[in-house]
Amino acid sequence: MSTRDNWRNLGFLAGWVVLLLFVPPTFSIYIRSFFMFLMMYVILSLSWNIISGYTGYISFGHVVFYGIGTYATAILVVDYGWHWIMAVAASGLVGAIFAILIGYPVLRLKGPYFAIAMLGAAEGTRVIAINWVSLTHGADGIAYPNIENSFETYIAMLVLMVIAVIVAYWVGHSRFGIRLNAIREDEIAAESLGVNTTFYKMAALVLSAIFPAMAGGIQGYKTLYIEPESEFFILITIYMKLFAMFGGKGTVIGPVLGAFILYSVQEYTWIRFPTAHLITFGIFIILVARFMPRGLIGFAVDRGWARKGMVH
């Protein structure tokens, strides 16, 4: 990627940021909330893409980092009186530490075993959140003081999304990312060609845990109430995976496009067909999987509309 390409892409990102900055003063609370969720799913999809798209370790339990982040932020703010921004930053650290702790055993597994282990980690953590009442307040959940915070949380999510996009861009255009791809393609060959696969897989998992944890912290603070069933909801993992795969996993722009388009379609079908929106959404996904199995970016590459590879 040339310096010129980097500046062009940075300009493109800056343009989007400016447009998104106009949302809070211009549109209704509903639209603001829609864009906030949309940015959150961009962050989650980009993060899932680092461990699953680039490295090939398909995670079925990535919501665990999101849930841990919502709880870490809520506990630090409500029970320990931290400023919410400090608590969100600390949630990123908590997510990273948690990734190291579960990464050590689960990254020894491959394919469906890793996927199921991650699903188990998420479900197990949800059960712990329900039962460790002294820390998490159990099934009652944690309520924040009732304040109006939609503007500052919107800006925080926007800033976090910009950082996540920049980090994803760096991963996607660096030798670090190429080495993650090499692990995805053939782990034995990668290791035989100088890649310390244990280190790189752990680095990918940690990187893919930090942003969901922080996004969860912001989202929890925005909704002012969290409880285990919502924060460890498996549908959040399914969404981040779907959005990344729809756009094109293993690419930078894929998860961003996927989240923008698919989350909008999901919202539209929910408004238009409230009783059948999941069916409509499901049909859409089946059609995409049938005709664009490698996502939008793969579709474009196959037709020569986009260049092959990440690094040129």
Binding site: R175, I178, R179, N181, A182, E185, D186, I188, A189, A190, S192, L193, G194, V195, G250, K308, G309, M310, V311, H312
Partner: peptide
């Protein structure tokens, strides 16, 4: 350094990326 009996090139990475993946 080595090669393999049945080639283990990275099939969904470009030739250039295959090369760069093995750089120190």
């Amino acid at each position: 350094s080595r090669t393999f009996q049945i080639t283990r090139i990275y099939r969904e990475m470009t030739v250039f990326e295959n090369m760069l993946s093995a750089s120190s």
